[in-house]
Write a protein that binds this DNA or RNA. Structure first.
Lengths: 167, 167
DNA sequence: TTGTCTGCAAACACTTTGCACTTTT
DNA sequence: AAAAGTGCAAAGTGTTTGCAGACAA
């Protein structure tokens, strides 16, 4: 799966993701192990959306030493979500992760044909969510907006030969 | 899981969900079996969000005769989604279904504590999605907006004793 | 040394499939 | 009678857990 459109750059943050993760771990008596470092490093240097099995594969292809078992990958991803480094979402039945720390809030256009994700930012949506939440005396913690459809490329290819896809 | 807020009423439609499903089946040489009827009937008479296992349980509690096996429930739910009667979404790792046919497009407030879903409608969001899609030469087919946070009830209970939840 | 973490294998929940039999058409 | 659907049991996914040994603090 690729990220296209206008990749959003990192925003100024006091700490690197690594530092922030270490702080998070230390704050709760957890340990900084080689596996956790390897995972944070790898994830931090790849800005695409990914899932657990993909990450596991990537680590396996890596020069020896830099490895972690399946359970450890799953456990560490959950910790990174808890630490606010990653955000989790389900797209077409797949649980994918994306960077959260140091990146601006954004939403997605999801191509149901090639699975491409296009990111976009919008204050409008955030403001709108805040308004709706207020109206329902709801304490909003975040939102997720996914517009699904066909990207420009798939749209073109599709006009010629028609297929049937699930949204 | 409950649906609260302002339950959206059905909109005028030419056919009942049952009729529409039969048409859908006949149109592709599929058969109208008792199991399929039982499932459509049951689903049509319950307007809450539900998942496959829940539906299966409900059917089992029902006066005998009105039953369907697990595989049949899964198969039929998929058909109902294809027929445009139901919409599928994943919330907190659970695959839930909601009515689609004859109901206005709407979005959700999702309480991460009690899992309650509050529905709301908004032209604003739809228009906004159309605009963003156009800007990216994307052919939008639909959108999903979920605002997560704490509902009024949980918000109140939470102020006293604090817990830790995942979004 | 102490207590956490890792990796293995097994357990898991949810969903799908192969196949013989039943039912609709 | 022919074709599609059903239910059972079994196989799959993707993810989580119990536990003994490994390791950070």
């Amino acid at each position: 799966m690729a990220v296209a459109g206008f990749p959003l750059g990192r925003v100024d943050t006091a700490m690197t993701p690594q530092e922030r993760f270490e702080e998070f771990l230390q704050a709760r008596g957890k340990r900084i192990t080689r596996q956790r470092q390897v995972i944070v490093d790898h994830v931090s240097s790849h800005h695409e959306h990914f899932d657990a099995e993909q990450l596991l594969d990537d680590l396996r292809k890596t020069p020896d030493g830099a490895k972690a078992s399946r359970p450890t990958v799953y456990r560490t991803l959950a910790e990174m979500v808890a630490a606010g480094l990653l955000k989790e979402m389900v797209l077409g039945g797949r649980r994918v992760y994306e960077h959260d720390y140091g990146y601006p809030q954004h939403d997605h256009l999801h191509c149901t044909s090639c699975q491409k994700l296009i990111e976009f930012t919008s204050d409008e949506v955030s403001q709108f969510c805040a308004a709706v939440a207020a109206k329902h005396r709801f304490r909003a913690q975040g939102h997720r907006l996914i517009v699904s459809g066909l990207c420009a490329d798939c749209c073109r290819n599709r006009s010629a030969s028609r297929h049937q896809d699930r949204v």
